[in-house]
């Protein structure tokens, strides 16, 4: 099954075609890497998938449903998550709050505060950050961020 696919995805910055007529798909269970020289348009493609920027033409589908044209929060709630090339944490929120936000808002149904708290605590335990869960995220080492 195709989990994510794009057809003739195109994005121009002024006259520069950063992403031009790209077709791609990722099937269920696959792990796919995207490589290319600096400025090839990799980050732009990810920005188009997550709707950080709007595409000029083409269509992107997730599990068969069209997601191009939706807002980032809607795409996220459907189950598409992303990270950024430069780390983006909520610097002045605690590590726990950073993770909790995902539990609170990332799922379509939403979660009670208590459930989000315990899920976030478990996840931090899993990645070995429980001991720093209360400090502001900006005080973590870059790798831990």
């Amino acid at each position: 099954m195709r989990v994510i696919e794009g057809e003739r995805v195109t994005k121009y910055f002024g006259g520069l075609a950063a992403v031009s007529n790209v077709d791609f798909h990722v099937d269920n269970g696959e792990i796919v890497g995207l490589i290319g020289p600096n400025g090839a348009g990799k980050t732009t493609l990810f920005n188009l998938i997550s709707a950080a920027i709007a595409l000029k033409s083409g269509v992107i589908r997730f599990k068969g449903e069209k997601i191009s044209g939706l807002k980032p929060y809607q795409i996220c709630r459907m189950g598409v998550s992303r990270t950024f090339q430069s780390v983006k944490v909520f610097s002045n929120l605690s590590v726990l709050q950073n993770v909790m936000l995902g539990s609170l808002y990332g799922a379509p149904a939403g979660m009670s505060d208590a459930d989000a708290n315990s899920e976030a605590t478990e996840l931090l335990e899993f990645v070995g950050l429980s001991n720093v869960s209360m400090i502001p995220a900006k005080d973590l080492t870059l790798a831990n961020q």
């Binding site: 950080a52 929060y73 909520f90 936000l101 609170l104 989000a116």
Partner: peptide, 25 residues
């Protein structure tokens, strides 16, 4: 509230907030 936490996350980094499922607008 979780609404307040969302507000703070917008102030910290609006793009990231939008990408973890917050309807920032």
């Amino acid at each position: 509230s979780k609404f307040g936490l969302a507000l703070q996350s917008i102030g910290e980094n609006e793009e990231a907030a939008a990408h973890i499922g917050i309807n920032v607008t």
